[in-house]
Write a protein that binds this DNA or RNA. Structure first.
Length: 112
DNA sequence: ACTTTGACTATAA
DNA sequence: GTTATAGCCAAAG
């Protein structure tokens, strides 16, 4: 049993805090972890998210533009977009509609 | 131990 | 408005 936690594990924890019907950004998560400039690390860590349990709602994580940058990692199909739509999030052309409204910042709302 | 990479972001042109 | 470049840092090879 390892006592050392990797950056990825920390990312998974924050992503799992994202409530349904909401989305977050890599930058916001990075800031919450104290690594404001490590937004890339968040996305990099998510590569392993699909094999981490409990499952990480990575489909709720997009870039700051509200674009589904990692949709390709969910599968060749628009699986990521379908999941977002299933939660009430409108996605048009791989971009989240009303992004500011569905945006959820762990540092602001924080499990609210 | 060094090099490469990557689901990003910010700034410049 | 878009496109290009640099900075950023952790994990894998």
């Amino acid at each position: 049993m390892k006592t050392e936690y990797t950056f990825a594990e920390n990312v998974y924890d924050v992503v799992r805090l994202i409530p349904p019907g909401r989305v977050s950004t890599y930058g916001a998560i990075a800031v919450y972890l104290g690594a404001t400039k490590s937004a890339r690390l968040v996305g990099y860590a998510m590569n392993n998210s699909h094999k981490v349990m409990p499952i990480v709602p990575a489909h709720r994580v997009v870039n700051r533009n509200g674009v589904l940058t990692g949709k390709h990692f969910f599968g060749v199909n628009n699986e990521m977009q379908r999941k977002l739509e299933a939660e009430g999030i409108e996605v048009i052309n791989d971009c989240i509609k009303n992004f500011k409204q569905v945006f959820w910042d762990p540092r602001i709302e924080c499990t609210l």
